[in-house]
Design a protein around this nucleic acid. Structure first.
Lengths: 152, 152
DNA sequence: CGCTAATATATCGTGATACGACATATTGCA
DNA sequence: TGCAATATGTCGTATCACGATATATTAGCG
């Protein structure tokens, strides 16, 4: 049996391993989205709040970089955050093109609860993801003996 | 350095760690989306193809479960996949309510290239994510090794 | 067997989001 | 000074998921 998959070859096990990995990623993202909505936030708004709070020097452009969207999309996102009373725009005195962002008290409160919940969930997931990542990096996924039948 | 945080307390370091983790997740997802679009696929279509190929017994409902969306949303997604000539619907003879899904040759080809690219990228990321996950779990109660089965 | 509930898929209108194209304001620099 | 680069903003468009609703098929019960 092949211990290592050649760099350019794929078997059913490779598709299965990647599909399973994406499924696990999605489970976490779904947990996060549900937690956000339960807290009365759009999932994207929660992510934006975390990005603003978790990094220094939060401007529209920096927010865009951290979320992986275009600056003008971040401007639109901030419009929605301001409308939801989650964020305040504050002008930069030195460079008046730039707009700094700050969380409102309501946003701070919701983000705190969500961050606690996420920390707990991630502590739970760490034990699952370690082996999964190793399985992907190794190659030829072991144990093709089970009929792979569980779909709940 | 950040010492063990109590279960119910958050410091700036906690927000930073979580924000950084989400940023890394996003980097991978952005890589994936760009790779899909470069291959001429919508990111969501790529995800669906992988889910169909990577799991057995692919029906509309199962696809919904794997992608974490509602069954009727999966039906719409399959409409778009069929319109893009990526998937074929095939009837189930035993239960005529069910619809099985199969990839077209074109989809197989694109999915293969994308899966190779993703496997390479993930091999690259494994070394980064290991420490990140440990960093998140670290401060706080050193979790005893509990199997922790997945329950919702 | 006939009737009703449950299941599986599908359609339609709506909402959230990101984008490209474009616009405006400010800054930097030759 | 004048012009390019930077930072933010607006608008119309596209993808995508959802709730409400619909239809077909199957299961189950008296």
């Amino acid at each position: 049996m092949a211990r290592k998959s050649p760099e350019n070859t794929l078997g059913d096990a490779d598709y299965r391993a990647l599909a399973e990995f994406r499924h696990q990623l999605r489970q976490f993202l779904l947990f996060s989205e549900n937690a956000a909505r339960d807290a009365g936030l759009q999932p994207r708004h929660h992510q934006a709040l975390l990005a603003i709070k978790g990094f220094a020097d939060s401007t529209i452009g920096n927010l865009a970089t951290r979320l992986g969207i275009k600056p003008h999309s971040a401007a639109e996102l901030v419009n929605r955050l301001v409308a939801a009373k989650l964020v305040r725009r504050t002008a930069d005195r030195m460079d008046r093109r730039r707009v700094h962002l700050a969380l409102t008290a309501a946003a701070e409160k919701k983000l705190e609860a969500l961050t606690l919940a996420h920390r707990a969930e991630l502590r739970r997931l760490v034990t699952l993801w370690g082996p999964l990542l190793k399985g992907l990096a190794m190659d030829a996924v072991p144990a093709p003996d089970q009929p792979q039948a569980n779909v709940e």
